[in-house]
Design a protein around this nucleic acid. Structure first.
Length: 887
RNA sequence: GGGCGUUUAGCUCAGCUGGGAGAGCGCUACCCUUACAAGGUAGAUGUCGGGGGUUCAAACCCCUCAACGCCCACCA
C-alpha cells in the first residue's frame, strides 16, 4: 500500500531554525511568565566580548544554559535568562586601535581620548552585535529586552556606587606598589591576568666586589643580570656562616660601579644559587618586599614600553632580551661573569598580550579583598552557593583563602573611568557617584578625574546586580530585581572561577548581603578530538556556525549536551555531530511514519482497559524515561539526559513500537487504527516535549504538525513522572518478547536465511504469561522476523527434529528446516553456547557454595544470585535437551 | 614545591552509596523490507594503567608506582 507523504525524506534544519526563532520572538516566548511552580529561575549569561566571534566554548555555554532554561520554563518556573556583552577593555581597544592605524596611520594619542572613545563606540554599534546574531542561530531563548552592555549607564552607576562605597570604607586605596606591567598594553594588570610559562633561560653567576675587603668577591646568581642597574642592595642570609661577616659592608655593582649595602635577610636561601642575592626592589616582587623591610630605595630602570631608560645607559632603549646579551658581553669583558648555565624559568606573561610582563613600581588603585573573600568562602561552606560538580569548590577556595589585594586600575581609555577626582587648587582627592561640579573641599572648579579605567572584571563582578537595574531604584523595580536576585544558576567554564565567579560572589555579597546565585554549574572546556585546546595557532578550531550550517543547530546542541556532564574536558569530534544529525533525522523519519495517520488520531487517550499490551509497554517506558530525564536535568547531567532519550527513541520507540504499529496501521481494523494513531500521536508529543530543551527546532517543527499549529511547544508543560503509567510486569514481558524475536532473527542469520524466506517457528516455554503475550502478538512476528506460521507449547512437549534452534532461559526456539541445514553446524553452535553458559553458571554457583558469601551478603543480593543460577540452569537444561535430540 | 584531575572496547566517553563490564562512533557479514541507506538485521572486540591491601565480593574503597593533563606558587 502506498501512503501519501508530502514531508521531505530528510529534515532540513536550516529552514526550520530561522522560522521558529522568529516565531518565538514574535510570540514573546522568552519573557518571564509566572507558572505553576510559583518560583523564579534565573540564569545569567556570561557576557561574551563585543569583539568576540562565537566559538565552541560559547556554543557549549549557550546550549547548556538554553537547555536548562527551556526545561525550567516548561516545568512552570518563571524563567529569566539575561544576555549581554562585555566591553572587554583591552581587546576591544586593541582591535579598534589597530583598525585606525591601518586606515589612518594614527594612534589613539593622535586622536585624543574623546575622539578615540567616539570611534570605539561607533565600532561597537556597528560590529559589536555579531556574536548576538550568532547566539540566535544556536536557538538561545534569553530575554533580549534585558540585554545589557557592561558600559551602559546602569552598569556604570553600579560601578561608581560600589567603588565609592569601598573607597569611603578605605577598602579601595591608591598606592605605589610593584605591579605586573604589560609593556604591550602599557598598563598594569592583576595577578590573575598573569600566566606563568616555562621559558628556557640562563642562570648567571656574577662577581660583585666588596669595597671594604678588596680581596673579596661576592658571587651573585641571577637570571636577569640586566636589572643590575636597579639593584639597591646585595642580600645574604643572616645565618650564613660564609657571608654573615659581610653584612653592613658595601658591594660594588659591576659596569656601573655603583655602591650598595650588603644586608642580611631571611628570604635568602642558603642552599639556593650562590647564597648571595642581588636586590632589585623596583623590578622584582620578592626584592620589593626585601626593600620594604630594609628601607631600600627603589630605582625604576624601565620605560612604560618595557625598554630600558637612561638610568641604564649601556642598554638604554633596548628590550630586556637584547639588553641581557649586551650585559653578558660587558660582564665578560670585565671578567665579572663567573658562570652561565642553562636554566628553566617560570616567567609571567600577560593573558591578553602574551608578552612577558615586567614587575614595575607604579601608582595604582587596589581593592582590599580580605574580608570579602572570607564571606565569599563562608557562603559556599554553608551551602548558600553550591558548585556542580562539587569538586570545583576547591579551586574557588584555594584562591579566596589566600586573597591578595586586587589591582583594579588600568592605563586604558576604553572602560569605566575611575570615579576619583583631584583638585588642582587644594590637593583634595575624593570619589563621587555623580560627576562633581566643584572641589569637595575648596569648591574650586579646577579639578580633574583620574585618567585610568577599571579592570574589566570590576564591572563583570557586579553583573548579577547591574543587569537587574541595581543601583537605580526605578530600573530595579522595572526589571524585577527583588524577584530575580539572587539568580538561580550560573553556568560557566572553570577557567573563570577566579576572574568572575569569585569576584561576583565577593562583590555581590558585599553589595546586597546575599550570594548572587544559588548554584554554579561548571561545564567542560571544549577541546579537539585529540584533547588539545582549540587554538588559532594549531588551526584545530571547529567553528560552531560551520557545524550548524552543515548539520543543524539541533545536532550541534545535542552533541554538546551529550558531551557535557560533570567532566572537565569535552573532546569534540565532528563525526559525533554527524552521528547526532542522523539521530535528529531518525526522529524526523519516525514522524514521517506517523504523519499520514495523524488525522485518525483523537485528542484523548482511550480508556486504560482498551490499551493494547504494547501501548501499556511504551507508555511505561516513556514514563521511565521521563522520570530519569527530570532527574538528570535537575542535576545538570545533560549527558545522561541525552543518552536516556536517545536510547528510548531509538531502541524502544522506533525499533519496536513503530514496527509493532505497522501491522495495525496497515491493517483493516479501523477502530484499532484510530487507537494506535492516537497512541502514536500521544507518544510523539511526549517525546518532542522531552527533547525540546536540547533540540528545540525540530521538536517545535514536529509539534506544529502534531498540534496542527494550534500551540507552541516552547510553552508546553514538561513531561512528569506518572505513577499510573508504571507497569513493570508488561515491561518484563515485552523484554522477553524482544528476546524471542531477536532469538528468531539470530537463528535466521546463523543459518543464512534470506530476509525474504518465510519460516515456521515452534516455541517452547513454561512461562504462561509469556506464552499468552507472544500469542497475542503473533501477528507481529511476520513483520518482525518474517514468521509465516508457528506454535507455542509447554516444554514437556516433543521438539521437532532437524531444526535450527536457539535457547534462552525462558524459551526454546525451533525452526524446522529439514534438508536445509547442516546438523553438525547446529551441534557446534549449541555446544559453544553450552560452554559459555556453563562458565557463567559456575561463577554464580561458586558464590552460592561459598558459606562466607551466604552469611555476609544481604538477602537481596543472595536472591539475585539464586535467580541467576536458576535461569542459567533452565537455559542449560534446554540446550542439553536440544543437543540430545540432535545426536 | 602544593593542589586538582585523568588512565575502562580501535576512537570519544559513561559506569551514582562496592554485588553478573556499558553507550555512541568505527569495524565485519547480510539486506535498497512500503518512516528512515543520514537506514535495517545479526555479529566480533576489554588481564577496567601496573603492583599490593581491605572485603564473602573491587573498575568502584585504602596504599603504592607509572604515564598524561590542568591550576596555583616569590624558587633568585
Amino acid at each position: 500500500m502506498e501512503i501519501e507523504n508530502d514531508l521531505p525524506k530528510t529534515f532540513d534544519p536550516v529552514a526550520s531554525q530561522d522560522k521558529w526563532y522568529d516565531v518565538w520572538m514574535k510570540n514573546q516566548s522568552f519573557k518571564p511568565r509566572a507558572g505553576k511552580q510559583k518560583k523564579t529561575f534565573t540564569v545569567l549569561m556570561p557576557p561574551p566580548n563585543v569583539t568576540g566571534k562565537l566559538h565552541m566554548g560559547h556554543a557549549l555555554d549557550a546550549t547548556t544554559q538554553d537547555a536548562l532554561i527551556r526545561f525550567k520554563r516548561m516545568k512552570g518556573f518563571e524563567t529569566l535568562w539575561i544576555p549581554g556583552t562585555d566591553h572587554a577593555g583591552i581587546s576591544t581597544q586593541a582591535v579598534v586601535e589597530k583598525l585606525i592605524w591601518k586606515e589612518e596611520k594614527k594612534n589613539r594619542h593622535d586622536l585624543g581620548r574623546e575622539e578615540f572613545m567616539k570611534r570605539i563606540w561607533h565600532w561597537k554599534e556597528q560590529y559589536g552585535s555579531e556574536i548576538v546574531n550568532q547566539q540566535k542561530k544556536m536557538g538561545v531563548s534569553c530575554d533580549w529586552d534585558y540585554s545589557t552592555f557592561t558600559l551602559d549607564p546602569i552598569p556604570n552607576m553600579a560601578v561608581k556606587k560600589f567603588f565609592v562605597m569601598l573607597f569611603n570604607e578605605g577598602l579601595i586605596y591608591q598606592s605605589d606598589y610593584i605591579v605586573n606591567w604589560d609593556p604591550i598594553l602599557q598598563s598594569a594588570i592583576s595577578d590573575a591576568e598573569v600566566e606563568h610559562k616555562d621559558v628556557k633561560g640562563f642562570f648567571y653567576s656574577i662577581k660583585y666586589k666588596v669595597k671594604e675587603l678588596p680581596d673579596t668577591e661576592l658571587v651573585i646568581a641571577t637570571t636577569r643580570p640586566e636589572t643590575m642597574y636597579g639593584d639597591t642592595a646585595v642580600a645574604v642570609n643572616s645565618d650564613d656562616e660564609r657571608f654573615k661577616h659581610l653584612i653592613g659592608m658595601t658591594a660594588i655593582i659591576p659596569i656601573s660601579n655603583r655602591e650598595v649595602p650588603i644586608i642580611g635577610d631571611v628570604h635568602v636561601d642558603i642552599e639556593k644559587g650562590t647564597g648571595c642575592l642581588k636586590v632589585t626592589p623596583g623590578h622584582d616582587f620578592n626584592d620589593f618586599e626585601i626593600g620594604k623591610r630594609h628601607n631600600l630605595p627603589i630605582i625604576t630602570i624601565l620605560n612604560k614600553d618595557g625598554t630600558f631608560n637612561r638610568l641604564a645607559p649601556e642598554i638604554e632603549g633596548m628590550k630586556p632580551k637584547e639588553a641581557r646579551a649586551k650585559i653578558e658581553q660587558l660582564l665578560t669583558e670585565l671578567d665579572a661573569l663567573v658562570e652561565k648555565k642553562e636554566h628553566m624559568n617560570s616567567v609571567g606573561h600577560g593573558q591578553r598580550s602574551d608578552e612577558i610582563v615586567e614587575p614595575m613600581v607604579s601608582k595604582q588603585w587596589f581593592m582590599n579583598t580580605q574580608s570579602m573573600s572570607e564571606t565569599a568562602v563562608r557562603s559556599v561552606e554553608n551551602g548558600d552557593m553550591t558548585f556542580f560538580p562539587k569538586g570545583w569548590e576547591n579551586t574557588y577556595f584555594s584562591w579566596l583563602r589566600n586573597p591578595k589585594d586586587w589591582c583594579i586600575s588600568r592605563q586604558l581609555w576604553w572602560g569605566h573611568q575611575i570615579p576619583v577626582y583631584y583638585c588642582r587648587k587644594c590637593d583634595a582627592k575624593w570619589a563621587a557617584e555623580v560627576d562633581p561640579h566643584e572641589c569637595i573641599e575648596c569648591k574650586d572648579k579646577d579639578f580633574f578625574q583620574d585618567p585610568d579605567v577599571l579592570d574589566t572584571w570590576f564591572s563583570s563582578g557586579l553583573w548579577p546586580l547591574s543587569t537587574l537595574g541595581w543601583p537605580d531604584k526605578e530600573a530595579m523595580k522595572e526589571k524585577g530585581f527583588d524577584k530575580f536576585y539572587p539568580n538561580t544558576t550560573l553556568i560557566t567554564g572553570f577557567d573563570i572561577i577566579f576572574f568572575w565567579v569569585a569576584r561576583m560572589m565577593m562583590m555581590g555579597i558585599k553589595a546586597t548581603g546575599q550570594s548572587p546565585f544559588a548554584h554554579t554549574y561548571i561545564h567542560a572546556i571544549v577541546r579537539d578530538k585529540q584533547g588539545r585546546k582549540m587554538s588559532k595557532s594549531l588551526g584545530n578550531g571547529i567553528d560552531p556556525l560551520d557545524m550548524v550550517g552543515q548539520y543543524g543547530a539541533d545536532a550541534m546542541r545535542f552533541t554538546l549536551a551529550a558531551g557535557s556532564g560533570y567532566n572537565r574536558d569535552l573532546n569534540l569530534d565532528p563525526e559525533r555531530i554527524e552521528g547526532y544529525r542522523n539521530f535528529v533525522n531518525k526522529l524526523w523519519n519516525a514522524f514521517r511514519f506517523v504523519y499520514p495517520f495523524l488525522d485518525k488520531a483523537q485528542d484523548e487517550l482511550p480508556v486504560k482497559s482498551e490499551w493494547h499490551l504494547h501501548d501499556k509497554w511504551i507508555l511505561a517506558e516513556l514514563n521511565t524515561v521521563a522520570e530519569s530525564m527530570n532527574k538528570s536535568m535537575d542535576t545538570y547531567r545533560f549527558d545522561d539526559a541525552c543518552s536516556e532519550i536517545y536510547a528510548f527513541v531509538y531502541d524502544k520507540f522506533c525499533s519496536w513500537y513503530i514496527e509493532l504499529s505497522k501491522n495495525i496501521l496497515y491493517g483493516e481494523d479501523e477502530l484499532e487504527k484510530v487507537k494506535r494513531a492516537t497512541m502514536l500521536r500521544f507518544c510523539f508529543k511526549k517525546i518532542v516535549t522531552l527533547l525540546h530543551p536540547i533540540t528545540p527546532f525540530i521538536t517545535e517543527e514536529i509539534w506544529s504538525y502534531l498540534e496542527d499549529g494550534k500551540s507552541l511547544l516552547i510553552g508546553q508543560e514538561y513531561v512528569e513522572f506518572d505513577a499510573k503509567l508504571e507497569n513493570k510486569t508488561v515491561q518484563e514481558m515485552m523484554n522477553k518478547f524482544i528476546d524471542v524475536t531477536t532469538g528468531i532473527r539470530n537463528v535466521r542469520s546463523a543459518v543464512n536465511l534470506k530476509p525474504k524466506d518465510e519460516i515456521d517457528v515452534r516455541l517452547f516455554t513454561d512461562d504462561k504469561n509469556l506464552a499468552k503475550f507472544i500469542y497475542d502478538s503473533r501477528h507481529f512476528l511476520k513483520d518482525l522476523a518474517n514468521v509465516k506460521s508457528g506454535k507455542i507449547q509447554d516444554k514437556n512437549k516433543d521438539r521437532p527434529k532437524k531444526s535450527a534452534t536457539f535457547a534462552s532461559d525462558h524459551t526454546e526456539i525451533f525452526i524446522p528446516l529439514e534438508g536445509l541445514i547442516d546438523i553438525n553446524d547446529q551441534i557446534n553452535r549449541i555446544k559453544k553456547d553450552i560452554e559459555k553458559t556453563k562458565g557463567e553458571q559456575s561463577k554464580v554457583e561458586a558464590k552460592l557454595n561459598n558459606q562466607n558469601f551466604m552469611n555476609n551478603a544481604p538477602e537481596e543480593v543472595r536472591a539475585e544470585v539464586r535467580e541467576k543460577a536458576s535461569s542459567f540452569h533452565a537455559k542449560l537444561t534446554s540446550l542439553n535437551g536440544i543437543l540430545e535430540s540432535f545426536l
